[in-house]
Amino acid sequence: MSFMTNKDGSAIQFEQLIAHFEERSGASPLLEHCVHFEDAGAVGRYGDLSLRSAFQPLFLADSMRAAAHEALLRVDDDRQRSISPEQAFRIPKTPERIVHFDRLCRTIHAINFAAQAGPDAVLYLNVDGRHLLNVQGGTHGTFFEALLGHCGLRPGQVVLEILESRINDFGRLTEAIAAYLQRGFGIAIDDFGCRNSNFDRLWRLSPDIVKLDRSLIVQSTANPRARKILPKLVEIIHDLGARVVCEGIETVSQHSLAVDAGVDMLQGYLYARPAERLQHRPTSPMAGTAARHPPGF
């Protein structure tokens, strides 16, 4: 298959894309047939693992319209056993294979997203922290910008999610984020509020988006003190110039608390579960109930 077609009718330059991927990733037995196509779309191959895409929408809190979609990895081995993304990302050990695996996952997601998305659609992609530390010389984004071009996507349509609390080398992290921002990528700090997350890092990184860890909304549901703190946390992040996503929403009460707190976007099983096809409206009956109630119901 030499090309796939984007939603707008333009072609994904498949042969050029794979040539670019293999040329920049280096020679390795793992690269043989690293991407192929099934009815559901592009599938990656890494050793005995098959890598597929699932997409979960992020909804605007004021209109419940999908503002973007986050790509999530789905992994199976040759025996059709499901493997968690966390397990899969622990398999590559050397710097070269870590970079290769991270790029392969993002390549699969970009192809599958571009085949469905409109011309201004936004894609959220997770980046392995080890990848950031293993790419040298502030060249982050060079490879991926060219790859996106073969898919008909622009860096401005992509938000890279970074789990900064797991990266100890803050200097390298800052260098990576600066390089991505210079190329036009959006930056989201993921799972803020867990582990070693702190406002000092947030202030110095200046991300476009902050995604609150699910534990914050869960605590706010059960703990009156946490409930009072959540709106203040959102206000501080807004003052830093970033938008706020509350993820992991599973109940109507969590939806109400998040909206009351002033978050900009919502994500979670209450609205839509990850799926191969892009979803643009909430699919859950509970989400419809939540959307009809004003904040504070």
Rank of each mutant, 00 (worst) to 15 (best):
S2A: 12
F3R: 02
N6D: 01
N6T: 10
K7R: 15
D8K: 05
G9C: 05
E15T: 12
L17G: 00
H20I: 02
F21E: 00
E23F: 04
G26Q: 03
L30A: 08
L30D: 06
L31D: 11
C34E: 07
H36Q: 12
F37C: 11
F37S: 12
D39P: 00
D39A: 15
A40P: 00
G44C: 10
G44R: 07
G44W: 13
G47D: 15
D48C: 10
S53A: 13
A54V: 12
F55E: 02
L58K: 09
L60M: 05
D62H: 14
A66H: 02
A66S: 11
A68K: 02
A71T: 00
L73C: 09
D77Q: 08
R79K: 14
R79V: 06
R81Q: 13
S82F: 06
I83L: 15
Q87D: 14
V99N: 06
R103T: 04
R106W: 05
I111C: 01
A115F: 02
A117E: 02
P119N: 09
Y124N: 05
L125Q: 10
N126D: 13
G129D: 11
G129Q: 04
L132H: 02
L133G: 05
L133Y: 02
G137T: 07
T139G: 09
G141W: 05
F143W: 12
E145D: 14
H150T: 08
C151H: 01
Q157N: 03
V158H: 00
V159I: 15
I162Q: 08
E164K: 05
S165F: 06
N168I: 04
F170C: 02
F170I: 04
G171W: 08
G171S: 09
R172V: 08
R172L: 13
T174C: 07
E175C: 06
E175M: 11
A179P: 03
A179I: 12
Y180C: 03
L181P: 00
Q182A: 15
G186H: 10
G186K: 09
I187E: 06
I189M: 15
D190E: 14
R195V: 03
S197K: 05
F199D: 06
R201N: 15
W203C: 11
R204Y: 13
S206K: 14
P207Q: 13
D208C: 03
I209L: 14
I209A: 04
V210Y: 00
I217L: 04
S220P: 02
S220H: 08
S220C: 15
T221W: 12
N223D: 15
R225L: 14
K228W: 13
K232C: 10
I236D: 00
I237P: 00
L240I: 03
G241L: 07
G241Y: 08
A242C: 12
R243I: 04
V245A: 06
E247S: 12
I249H: 00
V252G: 01
S253R: 09
Q254C: 05
Q254L: 08
Q254N: 01
H255M: 03
A258S: 13
D260W: 01
D260V: 12
D260A: 14
A261Y: 07
D264V: 08
L266Q: 02
Q267I: 07
G268V: 04
L270G: 07
Y271M: 14
A272I: 07
R277T: 12
Q279T: 13
H280Y: 14
S284K: 03
P285M: 09
P285W: 10
R292K: 10
P295S: 15
G296I: 11
F297Y: 15
